[in-house]
Simulated scan of single mutants.
Amino acid sequence: MKSLRILLLLLLTLSACGDTSIQPIDHYILIHDNSSKVWLVDKQLDGDRDYTPLQIAYKEVIVFHESRNAYFHILKTLGTKPGIKMSYWLDESKKEFGFVGTKKNLVFEIVTLSRRRIVLKPKNNSYKYTIVLIPFPEY
């Protein structure tokens, strides 16, 4: 009797899960959180050298919007000067991330892409530094 119950429970569980499928993660959600998300440029690296400003007021933030627009701001001028607007794109198959602007396009190799850290290494000398982005800290 006990084994019959276990068998019925197992069949019920397997039949209930028959129509489920795994959907791939839309990595854009990691970047903009279905609205907008502010990322702090935590590090600017050129090889082993770190060119990140020491004072937080001179660090840069990037605001990513779900509309695929990104705004670059220096913290010191945030709210007093408009940010630099660029659109961004992501190609998971090539592990590339890029920004398209009116004057210049930036193309990066994705080293790390997660909810807590993005590491982008420049391709084709489009930018001088490897950048490490972290979500803007809540103080």
Rank of each mutant, 00 (worst) to 15 (best):
I56R: 15
P122N: 01
A70E: 06
F97E: 01
L12E: 03
T112G: 00
L40S: 11
Y58M: 13
G101F: 05
K94Y: 04
Y51N: 14
I31K: 00
M86W: 05
K94S: 10
L120H: 00
D50R: 14
L113H: 05
G18L: 13
V38I: 14
G98T: 03
F72R: 05
I62C: 04
G98F: 08
K128A: 07
G83D: 03
S3R: 13
T13G: 10
H73M: 03
N124Y: 12
L14D: 00
D91C: 08
D33R: 03
L14R: 02
R68M: 14
L120P: 01
E109V: 06
S35I: 00
A57N: 14
Q23V: 15
K128N: 02
H65S: 11
D42K: 14
R117T: 07
D42N: 15
I22N: 11
L8P: 01
L133Y: 03
N105R: 11
G98W: 06
F64L: 08
Y51Q: 08
W89K: 08
K37Q: 13
I118T: 00
Y51V: 07
K85F: 00
V61P: 03
I134C: 04
S21M: 12
K2R: 10
R68W: 04
R5W: 09
G47N: 11
K59Y: 06
Q55E: 14
L7Q: 06
P137G: 06
Y71T: 08
W39G: 02
L9N: 06
C17P: 00
